[in-house]
Simulated scan of single mutants.
Amino acid sequence: MPTWIRKSLVVMFTILTFGLVTPPQLIIADAKSPGSQKADIQGDAINHDSQSHELTATFIHKDSEKNHFLELAITEAEQQSIKKFGTTIEKRIGDEFRVIILPKMEEVIMSLSDELSEEQLANLVITKQPTGGTSEKIFHIIDGQTGKDLIRFHVRRDHPPLDGYYFNFHYHTSKDQFQAHHILGEIYWDKNTPPNWNIQ
């Protein structure tokens, strides 16, 4: 379209709309040919879309890595706890553990996953050998690259004076060199001494 016609159309459009509406892009376009302009617009759209897809893919990948870790960790939290209890203790406190303690373990594990990068999540290891006897370890979550513990989930037997036995579920974190006991909850056993852990 010749330049003088384009300018005339811009002036007429402005007068008719009292300058309240911007003239269509087709009218105010510079001397570029319509084909090249269309190609530029399409190119920009393609670049924008590809960037969006890259960002979306990154978020989806990170979310899927996180979800994979959470699914694995929560399953292991239950399995390793039941393994530690052994048959006798599991029959007595298994249901209560699933209602009271396991959801709190899940919260702690979710908080940990929020703090870590995608690469760190991919390298986490969950120990699979709870200790028996009267020792406390249920399972630990470890950085697979460094071999260092990040969180330790434990259960301790408590026997307050003039009271029965309780199982005190708690965890320790590397943030304070595993010094503090972060309580998850307690489950009452009985006035009689509970059997050792891991008794089938």
Rank of each mutant, 00 (worst) to 15 (best):
T127A: 02
A180C: 09
Y166K: 11
H159Y: 05
S64A: 08
Y171P: 01
P161I: 13
E106H: 11
T193V: 12
Q120E: 15
Q129F: 13
N198D: 07
Q80A: 09
H170M: 03
D143F: 06
E106N: 13
K62F: 10
I93W: 02
I28P: 06
I100Q: 08
A73M: 05
D149V: 02
D190Y: 06
F85N: 00
D63Y: 10
A31N: 15
P161V: 10
I74T: 10
G86H: 05
P130W: 08
A31M: 12
L124E: 08
P161N: 14
E90K: 12
K137L: 09
P130T: 00
A180D: 07
F167E: 02
T22C: 15
F169H: 04
H53K: 05
I183A: 08
D30S: 14
E78I: 08
H61G: 05
I60H: 04
T58I: 03
G19Y: 05
P195K: 04
Q37A: 12
Q120T: 06
I187Q: 06
T173P: 02
Y188V: 07
K148T: 06
K91Q: 14
G43P: 07
N192A: 08
F178V: 00
T134Q: 10
G86D: 04
L162E: 12
I15V: 05
S174V: 04
H181K: 10
L150N: 01
L70Y: 07
G19R: 00
A29K: 09
